[in-house]
Computed example of a mutant assay.
Amino acid sequence: MSKFSALIASDHRYGGQITIEAQASALAGEALALQARGGASQRVRGALYACAASFTSSAMWAAIDGRRFDEAQHYFDRASSLAAMSGDPAIQFRIWSHASSLYRHLGRPADALAANDVARNLPVTRRDPMFASLGHARHAAIYGLTGNATAVRRVLAHAQEALDRADPQEHRPVWLNAFYDQAELESLALAANLSLGNFEQAEAHAHRSLALLRPHMHRTRAITTARLAHAQLGQGDVEPAIATAMSIPADVFTRHPRVTRMLGNFGIKLHAAAPSSSLTCTWDQYAHDSRRNKA
């Protein structure tokens, strides 16, 4: 449990790194090696499979976060098998929920909705509203890609209602406690509204998420800030958008694949919106210097 907690903490601080992926995969191997020794009771075997599935799902998430999608698909295939053998619905939820994120990032909303429906239909979502809330919130982000504003509003309302019902004292897996709360719900609402082009609403969700984020959520803060910059730019607020984008620490800008891609797209949209502006030149210089300093 301590190794898993440390892995989760590392993910929230750095995110998407191959080192995190490799460490998680190695720890999954350790759990399976213990399982292979034999002689354990059914309960212990189930716990070891659940442990291996948990570490494999962390490797999967690191690969998704690092935009290494072929590797993520490989980990998903392995993790889903391990989770099925474990009989643990909580880890099954995590893996299928991660699969929905994988397909969302791949631009495959139909597959993302189907995967997330597997997660949302597991018994754990009926037992604990926190799981139900996360399932609804991730559905909203997917519906945003499809342009279905009505569905986004509906499932976000369901997500909020479920989160409000969730007992904060309920015992939950460490991975869920580590990241899902009102700030993450706001972040997923931000993603959904940004996809819909509802830039004013997206900005409001971004500010609420940033105000509520726990201090250790460095990766999420950078991603949310990058989305805020896009929301501001979408409203024509070029100067605030650039200031927001430049507030992201340079090491995160250049080393986290998702943030790098989001800010690269920000630069493209900035050039389309204000090609002759001195502010655009300022951004170009900042981005160039950041990449050069990384090298």
Results as ranks from 00 to 15, higher is better:
residue 48 L to M: 14
residue 40 A to I: 07
residue 227 R to W: 03
residue 191 A to R: 02
residue 221 R to P: 10
residue 119 A to C: 12
residue 128 D to H: 10
residue 132 A to P: 02
residue 139 H to F: 07
residue 121 N to S: 12
residue 190 L to G: 02
residue 194 L to I: 01
residue 94 R to K: 13
residue 9 A to I: 07
residue 27 L to M: 15
residue 189 A to K: 00
residue 267 G to C: 07
residue 94 R to G: 06
residue 15 G to A: 13
residue 197 G to M: 09
residue 292 R to C: 05
residue 277 S to G: 07
residue 134 L to P: 00
residue 153 R to P: 07
residue 133 S to K: 02
residue 28 A to R: 05
residue 262 M to N: 06
residue 258 R to A: 09
residue 65 D to M: 05
residue 20 I to P: 06
residue 52 A to W: 07
residue 127 R to T: 13
residue 111 D to M: 04
residue 58 S to W: 06
residue 57 S to D: 14
residue 231 A to V: 02
residue 88 D to N: 14
residue 275 P to I: 01
residue 17 Q to E: 15
residue 74 H to I: 12
residue 54 S to M: 07
residue 250 A to S: 13
residue 187 S to K: 02
residue 214 R to G: 10
residue 266 F to S: 01
residue 114 A to R: 09
residue 112 A to F: 03
residue 180 Y to L: 10
residue 101 S to D: 13
residue 277 S to Y: 00
residue 120 R to K: 12
residue 60 M to V: 12
residue 249 P to T: 07
residue 214 R to W: 10
residue 192 A to W: 01
residue 239 E to S: 10
residue 147 G to R: 05
residue 253 F to I: 03
residue 252 V to L: 15
residue 101 S to K: 08
residue 40 A to P: 08
residue 73 Q to M: 14
residue 256 H to S: 13
residue 238 V to D: 06
residue 152 V to I: 09
residue 219 R to D: 03
residue 70 D to P: 12
residue 214 R to K: 08
residue 169 Q to D: 12
residue 178 A to Q: 12
residue 135 G to N: 04
residue 126 R to G: 15
residue 40 A to E: 09
residue 101 S to Y: 06
residue 268 I to W: 13
residue 251 D to F: 13
residue 257 P to R: 02
residue 163 L to P: 01
residue 250 A to M: 07
residue 40 A to Y: 09
residue 32 L to C: 15
residue 168 P to M: 09
residue 95 I to N: 01
residue 24 A to E: 06
residue 99 A to K: 03
residue 257 P to Y: 01
residue 192 A to R: 00
residue 53 A to W: 03
residue 231 A to N: 04
residue 162 A to L: 02
residue 234 G to A: 09
residue 177 N to E: 15
residue 196 L to T: 01
residue 188 L to W: 01
residue 136 H to L: 13
residue 175 W to A: 04
residue 99 A to V: 05
residue 65 D to H: 04
residue 236 G to L: 10
residue 117 D to M: 11
residue 72 A to C: 11
residue 127 R to Q: 14
residue 36 A to Q: 12
residue 287 A to Y: 01
residue 250 A to R: 06
residue 152 V to M: 02
residue 168 P to R: 08
residue 163 L to K: 00
residue 193 N to S: 09
residue 66 G to A: 15
residue 147 G to P: 06
residue 207 H to P: 10
residue 153 R to H: 11
residue 246 M to R: 04
residue 170 E to N: 08
residue 61 W to T: 01
residue 50 A to L: 11
residue 200 E to R: 10
residue 144 G to N: 03
